[in-house]
């Protein structure tokens, strides 16, 4: 196996608030290998976006952060700000959820891509950078790229803006692309197109992708590995098959159960009852326990550890072993 591109160890992120520290990410460790697509799945507030922002070091100054984020053997969390800035946009680039607000409304789309290029290519002329921006827009499927580059974001549709965001993100051939809910704000038909562009980009550039989403359905066709987060913790991690067909975690199963099925083979939807716990005052024991259909007394007393099940498969559940038996007969 190749050396990991990104190795996150014991990452813990907390936001100070008047009522105490909100634990947004608790002891999360994972790896991303070159060219791999890792999907990070969870409900909103599970800590998946905060993890990504911590990798980019884009959290606010007051945030408590510990652990390590090794990128190509460099600890990003220990890096001086100016060196970190050189990595942002060049080695690690990010695509955000809402393309309507993620582009600066007062600069043309082309200029914003040009800025991204010139920041990391100091010797390139502005003209060349502009040509490159037009090429990039063409590559992500923006029609009439030359004309569109001179337009402002408000003249773009949502899907086109997200393509422009992708063009901007890949402008420096990053080794890692973090896509934070890239399709959530888009229409269903456009979602598929944008995912197609992401795949195209991956094929063309070979960059690894960290795909953050709450939509397990989106993950199925695009990811190599999946990691499920709940209430700031990693709950299950595994290959796509392990998660979808051999899940050892009640939360993952509940998530799978709640996916609407387009073929209509499922009779009813099973939304997960209740709400995620407060991150300010998390309950004792397993954070999923109040909503879990399999909770036992132990779950109330003790937070389960992440248990290694197979080489790439781990689950945080006291009853992970029992679930192996159930897995065979579980409704997929």
């Amino acid at each position: 196996m190749t050396a990991p591109l990104l190795k996150v160890d014991h990452l813990t992120v907390g936001f100070p608030s008047k009522a105490g520290v909100v634990g947004a990410v608790t002891d999360v460790s994972f790896e991303i290998h070159p060219g791999e697509v890792l999907a990070v799945v969870g409900e909103s507030g599970s800590g998946k976006s905060v993890t990504a922002l911590a990798v980019m070091r884009l959290h606010s100054k007051s945030t408590h952060i510990s652990g390590s984020v090794m990128f190509n053997d460099t600890d990003l969390l220990a890096l001086p700000e100016d060196q970190m800035r050189a990595i942002r946009g060049r080695d690690i680039a990010m695509i955000f959820q809402d393309p309507m607000t993620a582009l600066n409304p007062v600069f043309t789309v082309g200029m914003q891509i040009v800025e991204a290029i010139l920041l990391h290519h100091h010797d390139m002329t502005k003209q060349k950078a502009w040509e490159r921006a037009v090429e990039l827009l063409d590559m992500v499927g923006v029609p009439e790229p030359r004309r569109r580059a001179a337009q402002y974001p408000h003249e773009f549709s949502g899907g086109m803006r997200q393509r422009a965001m992708i063009a901007m993100a890949i402008s420096n051939d990053p080794k890692l692309l973090i896509a934070d809910e890239p399709t959530t704000a888009l229409d269903v038909t456009v979602q598929a197109q944008v995912m197609e562009v992401l795949h195209e980009v991956k094929r063309a550039t070979g960059s690894a992708i960290m795909l953050i989403t709450h939509d397990l359905g989106l993950v199925a066709g695009s990811a190599d590995r999946v990691q499920v987060m709940y209430a700031s913790r990693l709950f299950e991690t595994g290959s796509i098959d392990e998660i979808f067909y051999e899940s050892r975690n009640p939360y993952t199963r509940a998530l799978l159960d709640s996916i609407p099925d387009l073929e209509g083979t499922k009779d009813e939807l099973h939304p997960i009852p209740g709400n995620p716990p407060s991150l300010l005052r998390p309950p004792a024991g397993c954070p999923f326990r109040p909503r879990c259909s399999m909770a036992i007394e132990l779950c109330r007393e003790q937070t389960p550890a992440l248990i290694q099940i197979a080489n790439s498969h781990a689950s945080r559940c006291h009853r992970a072993d029992e679930l192996a038996v159930l897995a065979a007969g579980a409704p997929a």
């Binding site: 009852p273 209740g274 709400n275 995620p276 716990p277 407060s278 005052r281 998390p282 309950p283 004792a284 109040p290 909503r291 879990c292 259909s293 399999m294 909770a295």
Partner: peptide, 15 residues
């Protein structure tokens, strides 16, 4: 079972 779990005394610790 999961529905029964969401009774009042289980709500403590939730949002």
């Amino acid at each position: 079972g999961s529905q029964a779990a969401i009774n009042a005394d289980e709500m403590e610790g939730l949002s």
